[in-house]
C-alpha cells in the first residue's frame, strides 16, 4: 500500500469489524514500548457549522488513567445543540515517545452497541517524542435524517482504537449523555 492510499479518512460501512481489542500479553516488546510511551492528551467535540466560529462543546484533557487501563471509559455530557450542527468537529491529541510507521485510528459510533458510523484513518509515520492532533470534520446527516437526541442519550458511545499496524495500542470509549435530558 502506498502512502497515498494510506492517508484516506474513509467512512467504512457500519458493521465492518474493527480489530479485536484484547491485548495479548505475550506480544513482542516493541508494541509494549509503544504502549508505554503513548498518551492521550485531550479529546474534544465542537460545532463546526460554516460561517461562524467553531464552538467547542465538550473537551476532556484528563486521560492519565488511559495508560494503566486501555479500556478506560469516560462520560461526556454534551448539549443537544451539537446534534443540530451542520458539521461536527472531533479532535484527538496524543503523544508518542516511540517512532511509529503504520499508525492508524479507528473511530466508531455505537448506538446501543450497534455500529452506526465507522471512520478509519491511516496516518503512517509518527515522529518520536511527538505530540500530534487529529481533527476530523464530518458533515451531519441533515435535518430529518438525524437520530433524535432522546434516543441517543445514554445509548451512544464513541469508541476510538489506536493501532500500530495490526496491533492495538489502546482503546478509549466515551459514553455520550445529553445535558438537557439528564
Amino acid at each position: 500500500m502506498t502512502l497515498l492510499e494510506a492517508t484516506k479518512a474513509v467512512q467504512v460501512p457500519a458493521g465492518t469489524p474493527a480489530p479485536e481489542t484484547a491485548i495479548d500479553p505475550t506480544e513482542g516488546s516493541k508494541i509494549d514500548q509503544i504502549r508505554a510511551g503513548f498518551r492521550i492528551n485531550s479529546m474534544q467535540m465542537a460545532d463546526a457549522t460554516p460561517g461562524r466560529p467553531v464552538e467547542v462543546m465538550w473537551v476532556d484533557d484528563k486521560w492519565d488513567s488511559f495508560i494503566v487501563d486501555p479500556s478506560f471509559r469516560k462520560t461526556a455530557v454534551i448539549t443537544r445543540r451539537l446534534f443540530d450542527a451542520a458539521f461536527v468537529h472531533r479532535e484527538t491529541t496524543f503523544s508518542s515517545k516511540e517512532e511509529m510507521h503504520n499508525f492508524r485510528i479507528h473511530q466508531r459510533l455505537l448506538l446501543m452497541g450497534q455500529e452506526v458510523e465507522h471512520w478509519y484513518f491511516e496516518f503512517g509515520f509518527v515522529i518520536p517524542n511527538s505530540t500530534n492532533t487529529w481533527q476530523n470534520v464530518i458533515e451531519a446527516a441533515g435535518p430529518g435524517k438525524m437520530i433524535p437526541p432522546e434516543v441517543l442519550h445514554g445509548n451512544l458511545c464513541v469508541e476510538t482504537l489506536f493501532c500500530e499496524g495490526e496491533e492495538i495500542i489502546g482503546k478509549a470509549t466515551v459514553d455520550i449523555l445529553i445535558e438537557e435530558l439528564q
Binding site: 484516506k8 479518512a9 474513509v10 467512512q11 463546526a48 460554516p50 460561517g51 461562524r52 466560529p53 467553531v54 503523544s95 508518542s96 471512520w119 484513518f121 496516518f123 509518527v126 515522529i127 517524542n129 511527538s130 505530540t131 500530534n132 492532533t133 487529529w134 481533527q135 476530523n136 470534520v137 464530518i138 458533515e139
Partner: peptide
C-alpha cells in the same frame, strides 16, 4: 481557515492533521 480560535496556538511538536469529509470527498 477553519474558523477556529487561533489565539491559543502552541508550537507544533509533531503534526496536526485536519481531515474534512463532505459528500464522500476527503
Amino acid at each position: 481557515l477553519s474558523d477556529e480560535d487561533p489565539s491559543s496556538v502552541c508550537p507544533t511538536q509533531g503534526f496536526m492533521l485536519k481531515s474534512i469529509v463532505h459528500n464522500s470527498f476527503n
